[in-house]
Design a protein around this nucleic acid. Structure first.
Lengths: 152, 152
DNA sequence: TCTATTCTCAAGAGAATAGGTTGACAATGC
DNA sequence: GCATTGTCAACCTATTCTCTTGAGAATAGA
């Protein structure tokens, strides 16, 4: 699962992407329209600005904006910035690889082999979608109607 | 990320799958070869047996075995049993759907739309691999050698 | 210069989750 | 009856999550 913080970060970035080129966007504007606790958002935005993907200015008419054009930021990047990796297990990360504790040897680990495949299809998708891309929305109900052959 | 508990559960199930048809396998056998804390494994196995996918017998020559043939258990099933869902956000689960807190409306949520796609490719993969399937192992080093166009 | 506005940043608080362990008990086979 | 093996509830510690507090510092405009 993505943490609440990561989800907030993604929505905040989408908001800034939508308003890219329109000057500084005040935190309150993001917080209110995206339904994010304002003070928590300051923590998130300051984290994002340390990575250079958000810029800011203080004082009257200040605010935040993308430090990089939205076409140059993928959803994969965002998740990596916020949680370090796209993978489901530390040993299946291609960039932030870490050996798992209390595991069998990596070369013998079937879980790792499988999770590497999962990471790759996930990355294939998320690294292909940019903050500037339109995303086809899905009606709320459809998430509940699983096809017959799908369990969850 | 999958929790340590989920990873232990997967490895324990793989172990039982490998020895399917060989009678009860003592907990100690699983714990030692899979490097899982024995007492914690009792918690995990009892959880799995509540779902009927593990059976057990007490006393001398007792132990655990799969309650269902390994060909009938997918990795997707295992992850769903252990953590409730394959999805990265509650609102993108097809079986255990839950609306996210502090979010925008689901029908307007781009994050959800994207995470539904991620869920679907993940499920496409994990629901297609069964505990009885051979899994091609990946040498330990390869996880570290990211292709040029891959970032993490 | 004064003031209102807006970001900055370190600390901390409360709750939940993770990752186990303890210990008493129950069944089974010899 | 005794060793073996699973059952189960309760507990524990550390970490992480999700925010909040509160004291600044920069900026623009009056």
């Amino acid at each position: 699962m993505l943490s609440q913080k990561t989800r907030y970060a993604i929505r905040a970035m989408q908001h800034l992407a939508d308003k890219y080129g329109q000057g500084p966007i005040p935190l309150t504007d993001i917080a209110e329209t995206q339904n994010i606790p304002a003070k928590f958002l300051t923590v998130i935005l300051s984290e994002l600005s340390r990575f250079g993907i958000v810029a800011s200015q203080r004082g009257k008419d200040g605010g935040y904006w993308l430090g990089v054009p939205p076409i140059d930021i993928t959803y994969g990047d965002l998740i990596r910035v916020m949680r370090g990796s796209l993978a489901l297990v530390p040993c299946a990360s291609r960039f932030a690889h870490e050996t798992c504790k209390n595991c069998v040897e990596e070369k013998d680990c079937r879980t790792r082999a499988l999770m590497l495949q999962v990471r790759d299809v996930t990355a294939g998708l998320l690294d292909g979608v940019r903050l500037s891309d339109p995303i086809e929305l899905v009606p709320a109900a459809e998430g509940l109607e699983a096809p017959d052959d799908v369990q969850a």
